[in-house]
């Protein structure tokens, strides 16, 4: 049974940007790459980044923000009334 989790999440568009990373503070520890269940964090040679379309894939759990010891990742909840909707949470 292979399940694509993004098929199982409903969203209301219009979140705006709500996650960012400060490359200066990032230590490339890659904890965000391990923890993000939506697999939104990627690494290039010299930096870590979040995929461009994260707004339509993020689960708003804030794990990336929490796990970031150097405080490079900033997370604010998306605008009220937008983003993920859990009907069976």
């Amino acid at each position: 049974m292979d399940i694509r989790i993004n098929d199982l999440v409903k969203r209301i568009p219009g979140t705006g940007d709500f996650i960012s990373i400060d490359k200066e503070k990032c230590t490339m520890c890659e904890r965000c790459l391990i923890i993000c269940v939506a697999n939104l964090w990627k690494k290039k040679k010299d930096h870590v980044y979040i995929v461009d379309d994260y707004q339509s894939k993020c689960l708003e759990c804030a794990a990336c923000y929490q796990v970031c010891e150097p405080g490079a990742i900033d997370f604010q909840y998306p605008a009220g009334g937008t983003g993920v909707v859990f009907e069976k949470g």
Binding site: I3, V9, A38, L59, C61
Partner: peptide, 8 residues
């Protein structure tokens, strides 16, 4: 499978 959720 109907929904998937993640939270802290």
């Amino acid at each position: 499978p109907r929904e998937f959720q993640s939270h802290l």
